[in-house]
């Protein structure tokens, strides 16, 4: 059985907000390592890989690996019934056909209990190969969100150019063009805002802004984001959390 108690229930609410528009149904794979989820969007353009490590929960118990098939829209609706400061406990039996959720307020004088029906999801499990990327950009997650949103005014795609000087996000559309360049600035006072680049080779790739904007729904989960790129390989956008991560993979646009 699974029993996982999360002190900061808001984390789970934010995680659901960050994935529910990309994928509708997914298996939460529970093991002694923690709770993981991996799913592609319907058009096979993007993939979400989520890990909530066991040490992020207190307590965390999972005697036997379990796949909990969840409709993410339903789960996020139920999670809206939890207060932001509530402690959230997830429970499921080995023969689980429901996921039990308990929300306790911080005064421990209001306890709400919900049960969400589970579904059988026959999902193909994909192995994501370890890739050495030609360019890795680490930057402020809020800045990345702003750039994607701003450039969406001009176009539905963005060209990302990475050199050792900096990273340039450019968009061209019917009303004109725009570009935002962030210079590499590792020695700024505010570490949170620094743009850092690890580069093997200059990279220039095109991506759909609609998907990138969707990925930035994870911004409340981490102050930093990393963009890992190589030619003709899916972009990896990673938000690291205290005990886990959300990784998004996005196939590039090809052939200008």
């Amino acid at each position: 059985m699974l029993e996982a108690r999360l002190q900061t229930g808001a984390l789970l609410k934010k995680v659901l907000e960050a994935i529910k528009e990309l994928i509708t149904d997914a298996n939460f794979d529970c093991s002694d390592n923690g709770i993981a989820l991996q799913a592609m969007d319907n058009s096979h353009v993007a993939l979400v890989a989520l890990l909530l490590r066991h040490d992020g929960f207190e307590p965390y118990r999972c005697d036997r690996s379990l796949a909990l098939g969840v409709n993410l829209v339903s789960l996020s609706k139920v999670l809206r019934c939890a207060g932001n400061d509530d402690i959230i406990t997830l429970k499921a039996d080995d023969t689980a056909d429901v996921l039990s959720l308990t929300f306790e307020n911080t005064d421990n004088d209001r306890i709400s209990e919900y049960e969400l029906k589970l579904m059988d999801i026959d999902s193909e499990h994909l192995g994501i190969p370890d890739t050495t990327y030609e360019a890795v950009v680490q930057m402020s997650s809020a800045e990345f969100a702003r750039i994607c949103k701003d450039l969406q005014v001009l176009s539905d795609s963005v060209q990302i150019d990475v050199t050792k000087e900096g990273v340039k996000f450019g968009a061209k559309g019917e009303l004109g063009s725009g570009a935002v360049t962030l210079k590499q600035n590792g020695n700024v006072d505010k570490e949170e805002e620094a743009t850092l680049i690890e580069l093997q080779q200059n990279v220039s790739l095109n991506f759909s802004l609609k998907y990138l904007v969707n990925f930035t729904k994870a911004t409340p989960l981490a102050s930093r984001v990393s963009l890992s790129m190589s030619s003709e390989v899916p972009l990896l956008v990673e938000y690291k959390m205290e005990a886990g991560y959300i990784r998004y993979y996005l196939a590039p646009k090809i052939g200008e």
Binding site: L126, G127, P234, A251
Partner: peptide, 14 residues
């Protein structure tokens, strides 16, 4: 204009 690529083929089935 560029066409949107797909992820199929990048990741292996396990």
């Amino acid at each position: 204009t560029a066409t949107q690529g797909r992820l199929d083929g990048f990741f292996t089935m396990t």
